[in-house]
Measured scan of single mutants.
Amino acid sequence: TFYNFIMGFQNDNTPFGILAEHVSEDKAFPRLEERHQVIRAYVMSNYTDHQLIETTNRAISLYMANL
């Protein structure tokens, strides 16, 4: 899942690491979701930090390219 992918960046001092920290603390994050459209919609609806949203979009693109 995307959640498992992004958790691989925990403790990294990178934008993906920052995203992983936010996702791990977000109890409502769709952890079992595999459809990138649902993940993107969730982030757009629940996150207000523009940098975090952009990082999510980049992470989703990388995740999709590696499926």
Rank of each mutant, 00 (worst) to 15 (best):
T1C: 06
T1H: 05
T1V: 05
T1P: 08
F2P: 00
F2N: 00
Y3N: 00
Y3S: 00
Y3E: 00
Y3Q: 00
Y3G: 00
Y3P: 00
N4M: 11
N4K: 10
N4Y: 11
F5H: 00
F5G: 00
F5S: 00
F5L: 01
F5C: 02
I6H: 00
I6V: 07
I6S: 00
M7I: 08
F9V: 02
F9M: 05
F9W: 06
Q10I: 15
Q10D: 05
Q10W: 13
Q10V: 14
N11A: 07
N11T: 07
D12M: 12
D12Y: 10
D12G: 07
D12P: 07
N13G: 13
N13Q: 10
N13L: 07
N13Y: 06
T14N: 07
T14K: 03
T14E: 03
T14L: 02
P15I: 07
P15V: 11
P15M: 11
F16G: 01
F16Q: 02
G17Y: 04
G17F: 04
G17R: 06
I18C: 09
I18E: 10
I18N: 08
I18Q: 12
I18F: 10
I18D: 09
L19K: 00
L19E: 02
L19C: 02
A20M: 04
A20T: 03
A20N: 01
A20C: 03
A20H: 02
E21Q: 15
E21Y: 13
E21R: 15
E21F: 13
H22P: 03
H22Y: 14
H22W: 13
H22R: 11
H22G: 02
H22M: 09
H22C: 08
H22F: 13
V23Y: 05
V23Q: 03
V23E: 01
V23K: 02
S24C: 09
S24L: 12
S24Y: 13
S24K: 15
S24I: 09
S24P: 04
E25P: 01
E25C: 12
E25R: 15
D26C: 04
D26P: 02
D26Q: 07
D26K: 03
D26S: 04
K27R: 10
K27L: 11
K27Y: 08
K27S: 11
K27A: 12
K27Q: 10
A28L: 13
A28N: 15
A28D: 13
A28P: 04
A28E: 11
F29N: 03
F29I: 07
P30W: 15
P30M: 04
P30F: 14
P30Y: 15
R31V: 07
R31Q: 07
R31F: 06
L32N: 13
L32T: 12
L32K: 11
L32C: 13
E33C: 06
E33T: 06
E33L: 03
E33I: 04
E33V: 05
E33Y: 02
E33P: 03
E33K: 03
R35Y: 05
R35N: 15
R35M: 06
R35W: 05
R35A: 08
R35I: 04
R35F: 06
R35D: 15
R35H: 09
H36M: 14
H36W: 15
H36I: 15
Q37E: 15
Q37H: 15
Q37V: 08
Q37C: 13
Q37N: 12
Q37M: 08
V38W: 07
V38M: 10
V38R: 07
V38E: 09
V38F: 09
V38G: 04
I39A: 01
I39V: 09
I39E: 00
I39C: 02
I39S: 00
R40N: 05
R40C: 12
A41Q: 13
A41E: 14
A41L: 11
A41G: 06
A41V: 08
Y42R: 01
Y42P: 00
V43N: 00
V43K: 00
M44L: 12
M44A: 11
M44E: 14
S45M: 12
S45Q: 14
S45T: 12
N46L: 06
N46T: 13
N46H: 12
Y47S: 01
Y47L: 03
T48Y: 08
T48V: 10
T48A: 10
T48R: 09
T48G: 08
T48M: 08
D49R: 03
D49Y: 13
D49A: 06
D49N: 08
H50S: 13
H50R: 12
Q51T: 13
Q51S: 13
Q51E: 13
Q51F: 15
Q51D: 13
L52Q: 02
L52K: 02
L52F: 05
L52I: 09
L52W: 05
L52A: 02
I53A: 05
I53M: 07
I53S: 03
E54G: 05
E54M: 10
T55Q: 06
T55M: 08
T55I: 14
T56K: 02
T56S: 09
T56N: 03
T56Y: 13
T56L: 14
T56C: 14
N57D: 12
N57F: 14
R58P: 02
R58Q: 10
A59L: 11
A59H: 15
A59Q: 02
A59E: 05
A59V: 07
I60A: 02
I60V: 06
I60C: 04
I60K: 00
I60Y: 05
S61F: 12
S61V: 14
L62A: 09
L62S: 05
L62K: 06
L62H: 06
L62N: 04
L62T: 05
L62I: 10
Y63P: 00
Y63F: 11
Y63I: 06
M64F: 08
M64K: 09
M64D: 04
A65D: 11
N66P: 06
N66A: 15
N66Q: 15
N66G: 13
N66H: 15
L67P: 08
L67K: 14
